[in-house]
Design a protein around this nucleic acid. Structure first.
Lengths: 175, 175, 175, 175
DNA sequence: AATGAATGAGCATTCATTCAT
DNA sequence: GATGAATGAATGCTCATTCAT
């Protein structure tokens, strides 16, 4: 394995560790903690991400990549409406790690054309299938994903989370 | 002016300054900054609020009080549906300071019976007037207010904010 | 009661409170705490004792006065040797409040002629009675009182305290 | 020099600086002051000793180590009685730095088996040689060392210190 | 490239002291 | 005189960032 490969592997380990740590303690967690989790020294973290902000951005970018991946994966589903709903539930649903994906949307989605593209396809197909009202665009969907995530994060009551999410999904249905 | 009055005035100034500073920099803003904004020494801030957490709680409690006030004020409106919608727009709407009110809901609404009461009245009247579906309770409304606030905070585009909010309100209408 | 009398009463209350608080928490205890215990405002404490140091000094002076009082009281005892030993046990013995008296000796005894006088009488009589070696003076006794107090403060084991004290008293006996 | 060696050297410098500063200003001296004296940043002090208490403990432990060292060194002396007396004079004697050793005894001697061991040997040999009465144990000796140190610390008069110390040593002699 | 020790600005909090009432 | 609110310097501790090895 070339040294370059080692460095890449380290970068990935740091990124993964940061993602975990940020999910658990928020992005105010110390860089030391991230380094410890990654099994590297702080210096290594800073070599790959020269700033705490750069690390945070990279984590968000990676999460965004996964959001796009999920969207693409679901786009193959035959039932376009179900795919759209599943996507919503996946991101805004009950489990912490997935909710973290939405944080990435809030932080930088507007600029990321890949994600906008994947989401656009999912939305477009759902609209053509008559499962989603036709007067909404990708931006509204992103805003609602963010909102739904926060709304469901607020409470520990899982059934309340489900009911809240359904209200938002109802709002997205054609009248 | 008795010392008591002076002290109360100072307490209020600190609280107001903290509210402002927290809106601008989040509640991690330094106590020094709050003191500076209030035009007092740090010691004074700590005399009135012995802990950073106590200050944060007090700011939220005050915001919550204002939320309750708004709800009560709107409860007098003859058009119960309009009152409910106006409340939603007020808290989740476009202006920063009002959005801060929702933060208070997210932080502590569950425990505050006054706010739950005022909100309950507003919701109940809107439901009786047929403006809001009958299968939602105060908790769903709070969750949605939080969600709507975050959804609209995300973007600077005011018209997008309006459209997003309307989708949520549509979800709350009787089918 | 004249205002002067009120002020004197307050001074005494503050002094008593400071003594108690210093015994319990050491003289690093806050002035606020002393004021609270005395049932007065901080301002009153500072009016009577313009400095923390002044308060500490006053507490020590008062303790010294009590040391002198004890010495005088014991000087009446017919058995001069017993009186001397009792004095030693009183100051260096097991109970906290009495040990605090010795702190005052450590802080300022050299200068206080009253205490030196009372102690001198006690010592002199014990020496004449053949209970204490004749080659020691007041200074040695003070130094040993301080030492004995610290030696016995160190341990919680009461019987050990007693044995340690006896060794010192043995050292003071004529050979 | 490996980083490890540098770090160790720094740890030692901090420890030495803390010892000095604590001798001069007591262990309430600020960590800043210790850092300044050591010629390092505060962060470095806290890296090596994560808490003020940890630093104090480390200083005491180091002093205790030196106490044990002295005891061991003196144990080789042929005249066991002289060795014991020399030890007493060393710890409770006239020079400040040595008196600081006793502070360590007061703070933690009970738990440190090494020191108790070395002291025990010294004491035992002195007792077998008939220089120290047989009814005292290590605890009494420690208590008396503490007492003697305080007794001699109290005064600046060196000859008085010597006389006071001798009285205590007389008390330790077989009757 | 990786390491982790060093740095020092920054933060929450305490407390002696002052002063308006 | 008495009160206690206000002040701000000082303290212990954290953490992003740098750099010698």
């Amino acid at each position: 394995m070339s040294p370059r490969a080692d460095a890449l592997r380290n970068r990935a380990r740091v990124l993964a560790a940061a993602d975990e740590v940020f999910v658990e303690h928020g992005s105010t967690a110390s860089t030391e903690e991230v380094a410890r989790r990654a099994g590297v020294g702080v210096g290594t973290v800073f070599r790959h991400f020269p700033t705490k902000e750069a690390l945070r951005d990279a984590v968000y970018a990676e999460r965004l990549r996964r959001v796009g991946e999920e969207a693409s994966r679901l786009a193959d589903n035959t039932d376009a409406g179900a795919a759209f709903h599943e996507f919503f539930e996946l991101l805004a649903g009950t489990s912490g790690p997935n909710q973290a994906l939405t944080e990435a949307l809030a932080a930088s989605a507007t600029d990321d054309q890949d994600v906008r593209g994947s989401l656009g396809v999912l939305l477009d197909r759902a609209q053509r299938a008559g499962a989603v009202r036709s007067d909404v665009g990708v931006d509204e969907v992103i805003a609602l994903l963010i909102g739904a995530t926060q709304a469901t994060t607020w409470t520990a009551d899982v059934s309340l989370r489900g009911r809240t999410l359904n209200i938002i999904l109802d709002g997205l249905r054609p009248h």
